[in-house]
């Protein structure tokens, strides 16, 4: 199979996030980046598919801090090829990021071979709506299923399992090539010994592939970033139980609750 895994770096919330002086961006002083969790599952799912059905796993990222470590780790885990698109991830909105990734995939092959799966994570902590995958599928004119937690490929198609709210699951048949937003892999993401990552750093190479810069990096203008603000406070009723009860009834009546 021809498997593309799209990896995105997100802020590591182990460090407290703070708003920068501009009131819009995150304070970068102590900010660190890590691989988005569902993307780690997307990589695991791709490696499991490769182990079962053969093929080639290509991991693709935009440029971001600490991204090289993530790419070498993916290679050490068993990915065959690591590609970095030299476009700063932080400057792109989701629409533009999808556009850049679509341009890369189109340049790889148009149309994409029929055994191709494009596997982004289903969502990211800074893309909770999970917009990237459907936008990418639209740009590539490919079918899309999101929140996927199982893939069984067959000739020219795949049966995919998707999770719904309330504990429901759905099974879909989708024609390949397709874009599948991965929620979780069949197994937890594997461990790779540090020595293997170091060996990958010595022997493997990260490929840089130029893509045309998007004409409109952002569709939306960010006005303000802020921490949750307390809107109101609880009022503590003081006095004897009778007084408190009377006061409580008064408040409930006043607010038309009783």
């Amino acid at each position: 199979m021809n498997l593309y895994v799209l990896l995105k770096m997100v802020p590591d919330t182990v460090e407290e996030l703070n708003v920068a002086a501009d009131g819009k961006s995150l304070d970068s002083e102590f900010l660190r980046f890590k691989l988005n969790d569902p993307d780690e599952h997307a990589l695991e799912q791709a490696l499991l598919l490769k182990e079962k059905h053969g093929g080639k796993v290509t991991v693709v990222t935009l440029d971001a801090p600490e991204v090289d470590d993530v790419l070498f780790t993916a290679l050490a885990k068993g990915a065959d090829r690591a590609v970095k698109l030299p476009v700063n991830q932080a400057e792109l909105g989701t629409v533009a990021a999808a556009r850049v990734l679509a341009d890369f995939l189109k340049a790889e092959a148009t149309p994409l071979p029929p055994d191709t799966l494009v596997l982004p994570g289903s969502y990211a902590i800074d893309d909770l709506e999970g917009e990237l995958a459907p936008l990418l599928a639209t740009a590539l004119e490919l079918p899309y299923v999101g929140v996927v937690c199982g893939i069984a490929p067959a000739e020219g198609k795949a049966t995919v399992r998707k999770e719904f709210a309330g504990g429901l699951r759905g099974e879909f048949e989708v024609a390949l090539p397709a874009v599948l937003g991965i929620q979780s892999a069949d197994k937890p993401p594997r461990y790779v010994p540090v020595a293997k990552v170091r060996a990958a750093m010595k022997s493997a190479r990260i490929e840089t592939v130029d893509v045309p810069p998007p004409d409109r990096p952002r569709q939306l203008e960010l006005e303000r970033t802020y921490k949750p603000e307390a809107a109101g406070h609880a009022e503590m009723l003081e006095g004897s139980p009778e007084e408190v009860a009377d006061r409580l009834v008064e408040i409930l009546v006043k607010n038309s609750a009783i």
């Binding site: 010994p193 540090v194 020595a195 293997k196």
Partner: peptide
């Protein structure tokens, strides 16, 4: 298990 981790 992890001599690479230890060395790091």
């Amino acid at each position: 298990w992890e001599s690479g981790l230890f060395e790091t």
